[in-house]
Amino acid sequence: MSIEISNVSKRFNAFKALDQINLHINSGELVALLGPSGCGKTTLLRIIAGLETPDSGNIVFHGEDVSRRDVRDRNVGFVFQHYALFRHMTVFDNVAFGLRMKPQGQRPSEAEIDRRVHELLGMVQLDWLADRYPEQLSGGQRQRIALARALAVQPKVLLLDEPFGALDAKVRKELRRWLARLHDEVHLTSVFVTHDQEEAMEVADRIVVMNKGVIEQIGSPSEVYENPASDFVYHFLGDANRLRVDEGEVLFRPHEIALSREAGGGRHSGRVRDIRPLGALVRITLEVEGQDELVEAEVVRDQLLADLSRGDQLYFSPRC
């Protein structure tokens, strides 16, 4: 199901959370709302879900205006950042909740509910936890139960608020890939909010970069990375070096650099301040005369670096 967001604005007292947001999300797409905290991404997600009402603008699901429709009639699956599992219910009851709350007539029989819940728990690979309470689960397990609970009512749209934010780095990576795989299988129109560009890059089909209540750029991960529409997008999507030259300044990423021991060829000089191994790459931090900002270079290990030490003089040129 496609989602059309047109001219949505929202204020919280004097604070402008969203300003004239327009966004089209295709059916079956996985979209990331990416931006720093306070940029309005969570507010936008909550407006799509119906948890907040926009001051102006419309939300249209598959040609149908749902702006005035109550949360419970929008049929969206929502996964909260801190999961919001019902703490006094077992995992099974949590997942069954949506089915049991259906009005009589639409409500499946207990046997059917039992079957569906176990199917969902199987899908998130946690069937063996059915009788546990949320407090007995790890963060990653809670996250997957929250997802199973959201999917139980067969939503047409899946919304996730910082789905991996509260997890440690390793679990986060695993779950991220798992979610991307799951999306490939289920093909549910999904929107997730994140402040982590790496996460957006790795999981999303398209990235919506937001800042201060407006959309800075919409595009595929490679589009936003390679052709950033603004300085903000450039800086937000990765580390950036700023080098002062006569006319102004040059921006380049740490891997967009050529290093040499020899001067000449328009190369700038810098003094090695730090050397850090990063797996396949090495990060070298350079002090450059005439500016306080340091320049970082991430380059492949090679002969040049073999006997490099702090305080050495190096020459570099940005390759943009």
């Binding site: 969206v76 699956g77 929502f78 909260f80 599992l85 703490r87 909740f97 709350m101 259906k102």
Partner: peptide, 16 residues
């Protein structure tokens, strides 16, 4: 109020 919001999203009425 997140648990309440979750309940609403899953289709519960105010009373439920």
């Amino acid at each position: 109020s997140q648990e309440e919001e979750a309940a609403r999203l899953l289709g519960a009425s105010g009373w439920q």
